[in-house]
Amino acid sequence: PGLLEPTSTLVRVAKSASTLGIAIEGGANTRQPLPRIVTIQRGGSAHNCGQLKVGQVILEVNGNSLKGREHKDAARLIAEAFKTKERDYVDFLVTDFN
């Protein structure tokens, strides 16, 4: 646990805009077991960050694994990470390998 997979990248997204600006699909018990980024909206924090890409799969959010989380649960975790005032960034561990 906590060990980075060889193909994974840690991306820190600063909360530079009022929205995160990504759309995700997938989650446990679907064809896409881990959430995949399907859209990055221009002007959102993720777009401003410049390091997240459509097609990447999200493995962890602020160190919390998304493995085994159903879609709604994964989406809620990401939304809460963006909403919390505790940090002015969200850390994503992503991989291009699906």
Binding site: G21, N29, R31, H71, I78, F82
Partner: peptide, 15 residues
């Protein structure tokens, strides 16, 4: 492999 194909597609959420 065939089992995977029977899994439903996921909804999409904008965050």
């Amino acid at each position: 492999r065939e089992k995977r194909l029977t899994l439903p597609p996921s909804e999409i959420t904008l965050l």
